[in-house]
Design a protein around this nucleic acid. Structure first.
Length: 208
DNA sequence: AAAGAGTCCAACCGCGACCAG
DNA sequence: CCTGGTCGCGGTTGGACTCTT
């Protein structure tokens, strides 16, 4: 028993020592350059390897995040347009806090960016609207662990867990959300998709 | 001009899923 | 089947910047 806890402690210590040795905080231009170089050669995978190859005192996780949110080509910087905002609102209504899925429909935007935008702009907007208007509906606390939720939701969608509900529950019979949002073999945001989505969303909310 | 409050966003953290051995 | 390593996700934090008083 005691031995086990010592083991755990040692493990924890190793971890924190490593952490302390790791470079953290803001990325420098030099680090960015090194990271981009290595990724160009090896591709954006095996992040731990990339971190060591680049000679950065960063963990793979940190490298991945930097690449995904900042260095990746085709990243769109600057203000979220009205159209994008509208899309985010509608997608969030359907999907809840599944930022990566939402980001998948906004080319050039990252999940982190959308999440930040939501937290700083839209959540306020929404709570203001809710104050004025009627319904208060709790945002699903940890919509995360989505795969678990998704699995569960296939059998019993109810529970209101993973947000979205908003009078749109009815759609579940005729609309397979996960199918709809499976973007794996589809090119991102096309006008057809947007109009298809907006049309569908309008229809659903008219029903409710 | 300064200082306190508020906002924004890059980066970190912790967790669960996935996968290879 | 089990285990350890890795990845990807959403939540949270810290600090730089801006606004207000």
């Amino acid at each position: 028993m005691a031995e086990e806890s010592i083991k755990i402690d040692r493990k924890k210590d190793d971890k924190s020592v490593k952490k302390e040795m790791m470079n953290r905080g803001a990325w420098t231009a030099e680090e960015d350059r090194k990271l981009a170089e290595v990724i160009e050669i090896h591709g954006p995978k095996r992040w731990k390897k990339i971190a060591t190859k680049a000679g950065l005192d960063r963990c793979g996780k940190s490298c991945r995040l930097r690449w995904m949110n900042y260095l990746r080509p085709n990243i769109k910087r600057g203000n979220i347009t009205d159209q994008e905002e509208d899309l985010i609102l509608r997608l969030h209504k359907l999907l809840g806090n599944r930022w990566s899925l939402i980001a998948g429909r906004l080319p050039g935007r990252t999940d982190n960016e959308i999440k930040n935008y939501w937290n700083s702009h839209l959540s306020k907007k929404i709570s203001q609207v809710e104050k004025h208007g009627e319904g208060s509906r709790r945002e699903g606390s940890r919509s995360k662990r989505r795969r678990v939720v998704e699995k569960a939701s296939t059998s019993e969608e109810g529970e209101g867990e993973d947000t979205k509900s908003n009078g749109c529950e009815d759609l579940k019979d005729e609309f397979d959300r996960d199918d709809f949002f499976d973007f794996s073999n589809e090119s991102p945001l096309t006008l057809e998709w947007v109009s298809k989505f907006l049309e569908l969303d309008n229809n659903l909310c008219e029903l409710s």
